[in-house]
Nucleic acid binder design. Structure first.
Length: 188
DNA sequence: GAAAAGATCTTCT
DNA sequence: GAAGATCTTTTCC
């Protein structure tokens, strides 16, 4: 297991630290790469989190140690990827809301059926482009096929902090982070 | 056991 | 701007 010390502190710090890092997914002979540009922080003390009601079979991956993947199915249609960031037994993680494609763009466009910013500017969209599904829940992100690559932390003036999107509880918490001016950041 | 809501996206008006 | 698609998980009787 690689040293995930940089993901260990408060989940807000981990979520901000994930901006600029890359996700690499090897699938069907292709190696799909994206760079994370938007995240949201969730933990078991947060009413908006899937971990809020305690550890269950469904959310078990969120309670594992930092560096695992937690993928859930949203509205029965879309997969959404989280990077688990805490210690074993404490449920928390960062939802990867948007990323920018690194390559090969053609292969991601084929999987998405859309191109341009529509490729990866939302949590469900980026999972479709990257071919990430629930089968990867609990996966160790140091190993193939899906790996997380650490990148240097961005300077503070490039990171914007806002309230989260698409939730109905704890709506005031400033736990959404994105790279200032990046075209792939989601809006709605 | 049944019902409702959900960390979304697309299409239509 | 609003609603539909579609299914898992949670909650309430």
């Amino acid at each position: 297991m690689q040293n995930w010390h940089w993901l260990q502190g408060p989940v807000e710090d981990a979520a901000r630290r994930l901006l600029g890092c890359e996700l690499v997914h090897a699938v069907d002979g292709e190696t799909l790469r994206v760079r994370i540009v938007e995240t949201e922080a969730y933990d078991q003390l947060d009413p908006a989190s899937h971990a809020f009601h305690g550890r269950t079979a469904a959310n078990d991956a969120m309670f594992r140690s930092a560096g695992h993947a937690y993928v859930y199915l949203s509205h029965g249609i879309h997969h959404c990827l989280n990077v688990v960031t805490g210690q074993e037994g404490f449920g928390c993680g960062a939802l990867v809301r948007a990323a920018e494609p690194v390559g090969p763009v053609g292969e991601m466009t084929r999987r998405r059926g859309r191109d341009g910013v529509q490729l990866t500017n939302g949590p469900g969209k980026l999972c479709q482009a990257l071919a990430v599904t629930r089968a990867l829940t609990g996966h160790d992100l140091t190993r193939p096929p899906l790996r997380l690559i650490e990148r240097p932390a961005l300077p503070d003036d490039e990171v914007v902090t806002t309230t989260r999107i698409g939730i109905s509880r704890a709506v005031e918490a400033p736990r959404r982070f994105y790279i200032r001016g990046n075209p792939y950041v989601s809006r709605s």
